[in-house]
Computed example of a mutant assay.
Amino acid sequence: MIASFWRYATGSSTSTQQTEETQYDGTQFWVNPERTGWLTKQGEYIKTWRRRWFVLKQGKLFWFKESIINRTSNPRGVIPVSSCLTVKGAEDVLNKQFAFELSTNAETMYFIADSEKEKEEWINSIGRSIVQHSRSVTDSEVVDYDNFKR
Score class of each variant (00 low, 15 high):
Met1Gln: 04
Met1Pro: 02
Ala3Cys: 03
Ser4Arg: 10
Ser4Gly: 03
Phe5Gly: 00
Phe5Ala: 03
Thr10Arg: 07
Ser12Gln: 13
Ser13Thr: 07
Ser13Trp: 02
Thr14His: 12
Thr14Leu: 14
Ser15Trp: 13
Thr19Lys: 10
Asp25Asn: 13
Thr27Tyr: 02
Val31Arg: 07
Asn32Cys: 11
Arg35Ile: 07
Gly37Cys: 07
Gly37Gln: 09
Trp38Ser: 11
Leu39Ser: 06
Leu39Arg: 06
Tyr45Met: 11
Ile46Asn: 06
Trp53Ala: 09
Val55Gln: 08
Leu56Cys: 03
Lys60Tyr: 03
Lys60Ala: 04
Leu61Ile: 02
Phe64Lys: 03
Ile69His: 04
Thr72Met: 04
Ser73Met: 08
Val78Gly: 02
Val78Tyr: 01
Pro80Ile: 02
Val81His: 04
Ser82Phe: 12
Thr86Asp: 10
Gly89Pro: 01
Asp92Asn: 14
Val93Gln: 11
Asn95Lys: 13
Lys96Ala: 05
Gln97Cys: 12
Glu101Lys: 13
Leu102Tyr: 02
Leu102Trp: 01
Ser103Gln: 15
Asn105Met: 13
Ala113Trp: 04
Ala113Arg: 01
Asp114His: 12
Lys119Asp: 01
Glu121Cys: 07
Glu121Trp: 06
Ile123Thr: 01
Ile123Cys: 05
Gly127Gln: 08
Val131Pro: 01
Gln132Leu: 12
His133Val: 02
Ser134Cys: 11
Ser134Trp: 03
Ser134Asn: 14
Ser134Thr: 14
Thr138Arg: 10
Asp139Gly: 09
Ser140Arg: 10
Glu141Gly: 05
Val143Trp: 02
Asp144Leu: 05
Phe148Gly: 00
Lys149Glu: 14
